[in-house]
Computed example of a mutant assay.
Amino acid sequence: MNVMLGQVVCSKAGRDEGRIFIISGIVDDKYVFVSDGDLRRFENPKKKKIKHLDITSIIIESLTKKLNDSIKVTNAEIRKALAEVKEKSESGE
């Protein structure tokens, strides 16, 4: 399964089931690090198995660019981007 930094995913297993995250790091072909800027801050991401995530086609370009260039990403940026994604999905866009 191809995943990218900055891609939006939804947890389908574990305590955080139903929460949306961004992929903040890729460990290997089975594990990634996810952050939501709130409970899972960028400094302390959650290591999740890819098979426990619903992978969306949504990629947050601004965060992807920063993550690929090793530029600091703030938790506020992550929260704002995820809020916009959630708002768009609720409005049916």
Rank of each mutant, 00 (worst) to 15 (best):
M1Q: 15
M1S: 10
N2H: 15
N2S: 13
M4T: 02
L5W: 01
G6W: 00
G6Q: 05
V8D: 08
V9E: 07
S11C: 11
S11P: 03
S11I: 09
K12Y: 07
A13R: 15
A13Q: 11
R15H: 05
R15I: 01
D16V: 07
E17T: 15
E17N: 14
E17M: 09
G18T: 03
R19L: 12
I20R: 10
F21N: 02
F21P: 00
I22G: 05
I22L: 10
I22F: 08
I23F: 10
S24Y: 04
S24W: 00
S24A: 13
G25Y: 00
G25D: 00
I26Y: 10
V27K: 10
V27H: 12
V27R: 12
D28K: 01
D28R: 11
D28M: 06
D29E: 11
K30T: 07
K30G: 02
K30D: 08
Y31H: 04
Y31R: 05
Y31I: 01
Y31D: 01
F33S: 04
S35M: 03
S35D: 07
G37N: 05
G37H: 06
L39I: 06
R40G: 02
R41M: 08
R41D: 00
R41N: 04
R41S: 06
E43A: 03
N44S: 14
P45T: 05
P45D: 04
K46F: 15
K46P: 01
K47Y: 03
K47F: 06
K47T: 11
K49G: 04
K49Q: 07
K49C: 00
I50K: 12
H52N: 14
L53T: 04
L53F: 09
L53P: 03
L53S: 06
I55E: 06
I55N: 01
I55R: 01
I55W: 02
I55Q: 09
T56G: 11
S57C: 12
S57K: 15
S57H: 13
S57E: 15
I58F: 14
I59S: 09
I59P: 05
I60A: 03
I60C: 08
S62D: 13
S62N: 04
S62V: 00
T64E: 13
T64L: 06
K66W: 07
K66I: 00
K66M: 08
L67T: 05
D69P: 02
D69S: 11
D69Q: 12
S70W: 11
S70N: 13
I71T: 05
I71E: 05
K72M: 09
K72H: 07
V73P: 00
T74C: 05
N75P: 08
A76H: 15
E77P: 01
E77F: 10
I78R: 01
I78C: 02
I78Y: 02
I78S: 04
A81P: 03
A81N: 06
L82Y: 06
L82K: 08
L82C: 07
L82W: 07
A83P: 01
A83F: 00
E84A: 13
E84T: 09
E84S: 12
E84W: 03
V85P: 04
K86R: 06
K86I: 08
E87G: 13
E87A: 13
E87W: 12
S89M: 15
S89Y: 11
S89G: 08
E90H: 15
G92Q: 10
E93P: 00
